[in-house]
């Protein structure tokens, strides 16, 4: 069963990060956080970027973890697949949350 979890963990982390950032964005816009500024950068933008960065780091750390002897699977198939999906998680995190860096926040 742990093997099934190994396969699912990276996409699960993506899903959590994606929902989390979307939720953070929704809450921030609803409560007008976007208008709070510090040194001409919106604090809200900084928070979104930080959340994105944390998610990317977490995904990055999953790749060697799932490939390691300590945490990775003993079965070669599961190890390969889980590492491949860790890459999927990383790319998905970078790709789908890219808008926090380039889009206007609450328009």
């Amino acid at each position: 069963m742990t093997d099934v979890l190994r396969i699912l963990v990276a996409p699960l982390v993506w899903l959590a990060a994606f929902s989390g950032v979307y939720g953070l964005h929704g809450v921030g816009c609803a409560f007008g956080w976007a208008d709070v500024e510090l040194l001409s950068i919106s604090l809200f933008r900084v928070a979104l970027l930080a959340a994105w960065g944390a998610a990317v780091l977490l995904q990055l750390s999953l790749i060697p973890t799932l490939g390691s002897n300590r945490f990775g699977s003993a079965a070669p198939f599961v190890r390969r697949t889980s590492v491949a999906l860790a890459w999927v998680g990383l790319v998905a995190t970078l790709w789908t949350l890219l808008p926090v860096a380039v889009m206007s926040a609450c328009d």
Binding site: F18, V21, H25, C29, A92, W95, L97, M103, A105, C106
Partner: peptide
Amino acid sequence: IPHMGLAFFSAA
């Protein structure tokens, strides 16, 4: 929905 919110889903 704000455009950034849409952008997440457009990207996905």
